[in-house]
Amino acid sequence: MNLVTKHGVILEKTINSFECLGVLNPATMQEGNTVHVFYRAVRDGNFSTIGYCKLDGPLKVVERSKTPILYPETPEEFQGVEDPRISKIEDTYYLSYSAYDGINVFGAFATSKDLKTFNRKGIITPRLTFEEYSKLIKKNFQKINRMHLVFYNLFNRYKLSNLIKNKIHVWDKNIVFFSKKINGKFAVLHRLYPSIQILYFDSPEELTKEFWEDYISNLQKHIVLSPKYKFENSHIGAGCPPIETKDGWLLIYHSAQLTHKEYTYHACAALLDLENPNKVIARLKTPLFSPTESYEKEGYVANVVFPTGTAIFNKELYIYYGAADSCVAVASININTLLTELKKSKNEKNNKK
């Protein structure tokens, strides 16, 4: 979309060992003129921690920690804590992230009152093996987008190759909290390949295996967005925490397009109903922005823009994203202009309700 301005790279890797391979996919929390940035920091061997820096205004880095603010502590996080997002609900910050043990990826979160000390709350996504997941999906395959079977089949072949002896669990990532409770419950976007689903819960303790078995058996009713357009032909996932506007929840998400055996990741936008975010009000029919610059097209993983955080200054929506899995960059668009463009697309057919 030519209404987007790209401001370039604001964070790059350093000689510090924890971020010597790359920095990417930042969570952002705006407080007045300050933007707190929690980014994925990668060291040699593709081990990830979460680093921190502070911005004065949307672009100027004025402080940067020389050590990680969050690092692996549990077996599920052995290979890294990755791709954070952050939301504030009442007086508490919710930092969600992907826990990666080298084989499996789970969605987890931690809370904080001061953005300095974080209290881990653990994994909130299903701990189901692919065998268990596939049985639940196959039982209801006529109701569910058949693409949900692709991920299972892919990893089933992977397992049968005998390269891995451990149990392989279903991957669930891109965990993003809404900034307020909806109907008294936490509302969280997540991604069971290839779509974006919504999860409501009162407490993490209720997210038992039985809960997830029922949830996945009725997965269709939890899907918010499924891949629809050419630039989404592989999969999509929640990007930045939804922004509450008078027109609805503004969701900046990512899509993966498979072309000639290579992926291109785009930034996309949709508008969800304020009272019932399962309901899609509008959705852009073209990407919000795509890899066009050298720092987006060349890097650890080529052709990637991966939006994960936002801030608003003078009606300008700044979108913070990982570029080519190597650095952190920023793009912006007037938020009213974006909402106007979205409302032009209101003929989006709601997936249910």
Rank of each mutant, 00 (worst) to 15 (best):
I335G: 09
D91C: 07
C53S: 00
Q142Y: 12
V150S: 05
K66P: 00
Y152H: 00
F178T: 03
G322Y: 11
V328K: 02
D83G: 04
M147K: 15
K352R: 09
H190A: 10
I312G: 02
V328E: 04
Y295F: 11
Y200T: 05
V305Y: 10
N166Q: 15
F38K: 06
Q257S: 14
L258Q: 07
N25F: 10
K285E: 13
S345H: 15
F78M: 09
F130C: 13
T208V: 07
I89R: 03
A323S: 14
G122C: 01
H7P: 03
S195K: 05
L11R: 08
K180L: 05
N350E: 10
G239I: 07
V328F: 01
F47A: 03
V305F: 08
K113H: 06
L59N: 00
E31N: 01
T245S: 11
L24P: 08
I198W: 02
D247M: 12
Y158W: 13
Y152A: 12
D172T: 13
L59C: 08
E348F: 14
V35S: 06
G237I: 09
A27I: 01
L154Q: 13
G239L: 03
A267M: 12
Y265A: 03
F155T: 10
T308W: 02
I281R: 08
T308S: 05
A269F: 05
K315G: 00
E316D: 06
E12N: 10
D83L: 00
L189T: 07
L70C: 00
G80C: 06
H36S: 15
S332V: 07
S17W: 12
S96Q: 04
T49Q: 11
K167C: 04
H254A: 04
K246R: 07
E63Y: 09
F47R: 01
K66N: 14
A323R: 07
I196W: 07
F18W: 09
I89D: 04
A282Q: 01
Y97P: 03
D273T: 08
S96E: 05
I168E: 09
D44F: 10
L160S: 02
H235A: 14
K165P: 09
Q257I: 04
G322M: 06
T34F: 08
K165A: 14
L338C: 09
D273E: 12
T129F: 09
E90H: 10
I312F: 05
N166K: 12
N183Q: 09
N350W: 13
L59S: 06
E82C: 01
A99N: 02
S203E: 15
L59I: 02
P307V: 03
K297T: 14
E341S: 14
I252D: 04
